[in-house]
Design a protein around this nucleic acid. Structure first.
Lengths: 213, 213
DNA sequence: TGCTGTGAATAGTTTCACAGCA
DNA sequence: TGCTGTGAAACTATTCACAGCA
């Protein structure tokens, strides 16, 4: 085990491995080799062993990895062995869909607050959450003990809302708005940017049709 | 200009640059330097010049880049100077939100078909689209001339639906399901995976609180 | 034997630093 | 002068290949 700083991409892959192991565990698979995880995740097997080596030695030579043990370790590494409290900012089409999305709950993420600036939405209920005004955010976030802010506002509002989140003490932001947020270094941002992914698809489809065959 | 193969990450950055340039153009900025684009996008300025160099010489020494010209070139490179026809598979919370999402239309993407397997949803209307049964997909997709399939189904359905898309001749898939899709090499997949991003946030927030200060 | 863990080799990406040009 | 475009250097990530061990 090394004490180097861990590449971002390794973390993303660990999450991928964890997901795959959860699937295997559900199917009652007990032991698996790095080659088989690699196959399922579309990566090289040495990559997996290297990724894991940042954090310890989890395998058994000649055998492989015990699915449930490795899953447990990965969840511990990623910090998924605890409940995370999310606050949603912007309850438009996308925001509302996220609130209702089962994936979050299944994985220990709970939306405990939702904010919007539209007076027509404020006070209305989605699931068991009542939508609060953005004006109350700064106070409510601290009260509710929110760990992670989820930005699903229009792009124009995103920076302003993020600033409020940060003032309220939130250090992690999941940003769905297609904009580069400016934040102080202690705040962690992850962007979910599907317009960018769509553009990349278009490039590939276009470049391919231009290429000589 | 080089004829090397272009890294995926360069394409993603080009999309980022294009977005930034569109913003500048809207604000009537005429000329900009790589240093200023770099600042706005959070990258190194040499990076931008290198990325552009894959495709040509778009700048003027001593001056910088003409915003509108560079934007035009980037849109051409990415293939955004045409209309793209999208087909949605899975009209759940997320799928319905995507159909209603203004971002797509603003950028030349149009959903021309939507499919679901739920008999209660089939025939109902969202925007100006009537939801069709998944059973009709293979035929309808070819008829509708769909370029890109958007998977917003449950994970269990995602692979099956993708297979149908591919059989119907779709070569580009934007996948919102948290699963690694298996596809033949000529098919391009982009994954929009916010559970993975959330996990990464949790890691960073956790690792930080463990780190020595 | 058959796997993991890892040093070494390779491949890829980013940044520096400056020549070259409007 | 003040920028771009780009070789060279530095850095980072991936893959190979095999020692080491259950």
């Amino acid at each position: 085990m090394k004490y180097a700083k861990i590449p971002e991409i390794t973390i993303h892959r660990l999450s991928l491995y964890a997901r795959q192991l959860a699937l295997l565990d559900m199917n009652n698979v007990k032991v698996i080799s790095s080659v088989d995880i690699a196959e399922a995740c579309g990566v090289n097997s040495a990559q997996i062993r290297k990724d894991l080596a940042y954090f310890g030695e989890f395998g058994v030579r000649g055998i492989g990895y015990y699915v449930r043990d490795l899953l447990f370790e990965l969840r511990k590494i990623l910090g998924l062995n605890q409940e995370w409290r999310l606050g949603l900012v912007g309850v438009g089409n996308l925001g509302a869909a996220l609130l209702r999305h089962a994936v979050f709950l299944k994985r220990g993420y709970t939306f405990v607050k939702a904010f919007d600036q539209d007076p027509k939405k404020i006070g209305s209920q989605i699931g068991n959450l009542v939508i609060d005004p953005v004006g109350k955010m700064e106070n409510e976030i601290e009260k509710a003990g929110i760990d992670i802010g989820v930005i699903a506002t229009q792009s124009q509002m995103a920076q302003e809302c993020t600033d409020i989140l940060i003032r309220a003490g939130v250090n992690g932001v999941l940003n769905f708005a297609p904009i580069q947020l400016k934040t102080p270094p202690h705040v962690h941002i992850e962007n979910v940017d599907f317009t960018l992914k769509l553009d990349a698809l278009c490039y590939k489809l276009t470049a391919e049709s231009k290429a000589p065959f």
